[in-house]
Amino acid sequence: MSRLRTWTQVGVLALLWGSTFLWIDLALDALTPAQVTFSRCVLGSAALLIACLVSGRRLPRDRATWGHIVVAAFFGNALPFAMFSIGQQTIDSGVAGVLNATTPLWSLLVAVVIGSDRGLRSVRLVGLILGFTGVVLIFAPWQTTGPVGWGALAIVAAAASYAVGFAYMGRHLVGKGIPTISLSAAQLIAATGLTAPTLSADGLTQIEIGPKTLIVVMILGVVATGATFHLTYRIIAAEGATNAATIGYLLPVVSVALGAIVREEDLSLRIIAGMVVVLVGVGLTRRHQRPVPAPAPAETSAVSATLHRQER
């Protein structure tokens, strides 16, 4: 994949992913968190399944691959999707996007723990500390924030879950000769199965879906979930899980702008300052980043050739 094509996908993904928080916020006007989470998984998986059928791709068949898919679906979809829906009940969509920008920081920590990163250089360590300082500034634990505080904590948990999910996808699913469209469709199908039981909590509440809610849910599920998740998979395959997670630091600009324009959300100077600190921190962690090593040197050339043919 050419660098221009990759960066084009990064830009599109940042716009789509950054708008997700707005669509969640709008969907929560009519739906419960469980309903929002389940509906986006159903619609996203349906869209990608149709894409598989149209492109002639098949879903994975072996049990081992599906076992990895279920684990990845929990950390990369079911858990963070639920945390976003719960968290955005009490915090604005713009703030949610800012907090989600911590995903690259968590990804760096995960990379160090699992050994895909050789360590923390001084500059990157400063960036890591700055990033989490920005999160603390946004979260403001010294204030009596009540449910707003818990909402922010849920978003941070979602960002950390994304990091774990991306790393797991990069290590166990990408580069195995399976088209990314098949993997992304299968993973959202698994996420649908994982989120279905949560409907018994608050998802069985009777709702009246008007035209506005229907449009919002369709965009959230098909575009902001299905298309966005598939692009994420492609970038993980091309750039590695840690590099893919760095898209997270582009999201605050999109989410804050959309929140202010569409929802007329207000941002305090503390949150703005926290966002700046987070972005500076993430930028420093990207200094001297080493590429993620290939999963299996003996099969690198064969797998690369297979992926190149299948993804065209």
Score class of each variant (00 low, 15 high):
residue 3 R to I: 14
residue 5 R to D: 01
residue 6 T to R: 02
residue 8 T to S: 12
residue 11 G to L: 09
residue 13 L to P: 11
residue 14 A to R: 05
residue 15 L to W: 13
residue 15 L to Y: 07
residue 18 G to N: 07
residue 31 L to C: 12
residue 33 P to M: 02
residue 34 A to E: 14
residue 35 Q to F: 11
residue 40 R to F: 09
residue 48 L to G: 00
residue 52 C to Y: 14
residue 53 L to M: 13
residue 54 V to A: 13
residue 58 R to N: 10
residue 60 P to T: 14
residue 61 R to H: 14
residue 77 N to V: 15
residue 77 N to Q: 15
residue 79 L to A: 07
residue 85 S to N: 05
residue 86 I to C: 10
residue 86 I to Q: 13
residue 86 I to N: 11
residue 88 Q to M: 04
residue 89 Q to Y: 08
residue 89 Q to I: 07
residue 94 G to M: 07
residue 94 G to Y: 08
residue 95 V to F: 10
residue 96 A to C: 04
residue 96 A to N: 07
residue 98 V to N: 09
residue 99 L to E: 08
residue 101 A to R: 06
residue 101 A to T: 13
residue 102 T to V: 12
residue 105 L to M: 05
residue 107 S to Y: 06
residue 111 A to I: 08
residue 117 D to N: 14
residue 118 R to Q: 13
residue 118 R to P: 13
residue 119 G to Q: 04
residue 120 L to C: 05
residue 121 R to T: 14
residue 130 L to Q: 09
residue 131 G to Y: 00
residue 134 G to Q: 07
residue 136 V to L: 15
residue 140 A to Y: 03
residue 140 A to S: 14
residue 140 A to W: 09
residue 144 T to G: 12
residue 144 T to Y: 00
residue 150 W to G: 11
residue 151 G to M: 03
residue 152 A to N: 09
residue 155 I to Q: 02
residue 156 V to K: 03
residue 156 V to P: 01
residue 167 A to T: 15
residue 169 M to L: 01
residue 172 H to L: 08
residue 176 K to C: 08
residue 177 G to M: 14
residue 178 I to A: 13
residue 184 S to T: 02
residue 185 A to V: 14
residue 188 L to Y: 14
residue 189 I to F: 11
residue 190 A to R: 02
residue 196 A to R: 00
residue 197 P to Q: 08
residue 203 G to Q: 04
residue 203 G to L: 08
residue 207 I to A: 13
residue 207 I to H: 00
residue 209 I to C: 08
residue 209 I to R: 05
residue 209 I to Y: 05
residue 213 T to K: 04
residue 216 V to G: 06
residue 219 I to A: 03
residue 222 V to A: 13
residue 224 A to P: 06
residue 228 T to E: 06
residue 228 T to R: 04
residue 228 T to G: 10
residue 232 T to S: 15
residue 241 A to Q: 08
residue 243 N to Q: 03
residue 245 A to N: 01
residue 246 T to W: 00
residue 253 V to W: 02
residue 253 V to R: 02
residue 255 S to P: 12
residue 256 V to D: 07
residue 257 A to C: 01
residue 259 G to V: 08
residue 260 A to P: 06
residue 261 I to R: 10
residue 263 R to Q: 11
residue 265 E to N: 05
residue 266 D to Q: 01
residue 269 L to H: 00
residue 284 L to D: 04
residue 284 L to K: 03
residue 285 T to N: 05
residue 290 R to V: 10
residue 298 A to W: 15
residue 298 A to H: 15
residue 299 E to D: 12
residue 299 E to L: 01
residue 300 T to W: 06
residue 303 V to K: 09
